Computed example of a mutant assay.
Amino acid sequence: MIGLDVLGIRLVSPEEPPVLLLQEQGGSRCLPIWIGNIEAAAIAVALEGEPPQRPMTHDLLASVVDLLGDGVGEAGAVRITRMHDGVYDAVLLVGGHEIPARPSDCVAIAVRLGWPMECPVALMDQVGVEVEESSTDEVEAFRAFLDTVNADDFEDE
């Protein structure tokens, strides 16, 4: 297994979904995972370490999952397990259980709880890409985007 760290969230263009970059620890390759705007915002908020005024869905889920882990005396972890037809699979490892979930949700929880993240070496060899150093302009652009959206922007038509 390869340990992973959140390198950041990138915006290719305003029309494209955000890309979550998970970098291999001690290496230069990343797993690029396209995620939704809501999940990107949830991860970005957690990375900033600023607690919300009211718990959001990922905060609630992190609290519940943390209780499950504490009940057996162990912390949890996240494993990005595979990619099939362009879609990544992941699991939360907690309390001796593997709970299938979207990678973006797993990362949002892991960042909140300080849990380690990992993937199989074969997955990184299959889809890992070299990524240049992040630009502060992209981070600022994403923050500006977050400042302009509200919940109504995500309603189904």
Rank of each mutant, 00 (worst) to 15 (best):
V129W: 07
V121D: 15
L92P: 06
D137G: 00
L93D: 09
L123V: 04
A141D: 12
E98W: 11
I109Q: 10
T136F: 09
L113H: 08
P103N: 03
L93Y: 02
H97D: 08
V129K: 15
A141R: 15
A141I: 04
P103A: 12
M117S: 02
A90V: 05
A90E: 02
D137C: 00
D125A: 14
E118P: 01
D137F: 12
A101G: 07
S135P: 05
E133F: 06
A110S: 06
V129L: 13
E133L: 09
E138V: 15
G128K: 10
E133I: 06
A122D: 15
D125W: 00
R143E: 00
G128A: 10
E130R: 13
V107T: 11
I99K: 02
V111K: 07
V107L: 08
D105H: 06
P100V: 05
P120M: 02
P120R: 09
V139L: 15
P100D: 15
M124K: 08
V139I: 14
D89Q: 12
C119R: 03
V127Y: 13
F142C: 00
A101F: 13
P103E: 00
E118R: 15
E133Q: 13
D125H: 05
V111P: 09
A141Y: 07
S134M: 13
C119N: 06
V111A: 10
E130A: 12
V94C: 05
D89L: 02
H97Q: 15
I99C: 10
V131N: 11
D137H: 11
G128S: 10
A108L: 05
E118H: 15
A110P: 03
R102H: 02
S104E: 05
E138F: 10
Q126C: 03
P116N: 04
E133S: 14
T136I: 13
L113T: 06
E133C: 04
S104G: 07
V129H: 06
M124H: 06
M124C: 03
M124I: 01
P100S: 03
V121Y: 10
M124R: 04
G96I: 08
R112W: 08
A101I: 10
L113R: 15
D137T: 15
V111N: 05
A122G: 09
C106S: 09
T136K: 14
G96L: 07
S135Q: 12
E132N: 09
R112T: 00
E130G: 05
L93K: 11
R102K: 06
P103Y: 01
D125G: 03
A101E: 06
R143S: 00
V129S: 10
R143D: 00
V121L: 09
A90T: 07
I99E: 00
V121P: 10
A110F: 05
G95Q: 04
A122V: 11
V127A: 12
L92R: 01
